[in-house]
Amino acid sequence: MPCHAIISDEAIKDIFAFGNFKAYIQPHGNPCGAERCGATHSQSSKSIFIDWKEGEQSLLQHCCIHNVYCKMHDGTKKVIYHRITIHPNHRKNGLVKKLHYRSEKAYKELGFDTISLLAIKDGVIAWHRLGFAFDQIADEQRIFREFRQYYKDIKSGTGFEFKSLSEVQTHDFFDNQCSFTDWLAAKGIASISMSIRIKP
């Protein structure tokens, strides 16, 4: 199977093209069949690097967005977000949120079943709030437990009533002294597997 059969470059570019934003696929690797997909590829996956720009200005901090699109042995299709780091100048504009909701809708229409990622640093909370579930219950329990400790120690919180991370509001993760993501980083918690099922 040529890798463009999993997803075409054009379909990927369309996802990132909204407002004044545009995607540029970084040419890399060998041509794939008739289409130069610009990616390392195999018969079952397509790895692609994207620069995302507003005009001439890149929206990214580290080079590119790296996504992998896979067709699994059981016939299901999966997107893996390997890297997406928005430049600090463009953060807090809900850019990732808009992109993710747009991606989720598009990948669903393109027949993908799940999106997965390894969340690092503040991504652990950010992706969870975008609907990603922890792949392992132990990770979720640990993060929630750390949040309880953070709430108690840093926010001097009394009357902790949250039953899970999903119930926690954005402002609860912040404090002048230390944000919860800084707290997690100090504990050495990183690289948490998460995924979201997009196929109903």
């Binding site: 970084q26 040419p27 890399h28 690097f49 580290h62 590119c64 790296h66």
Partner: peptide
């Protein structure tokens, strides 16, 4: 990973 334009991406391997 070196792209055709010479830019380099450091891909983390887990």
């Amino acid at each position: 990973i070196v792209f055709e334009d010479g830019s380099v991406y450091k891909k983390p391997i887990y």
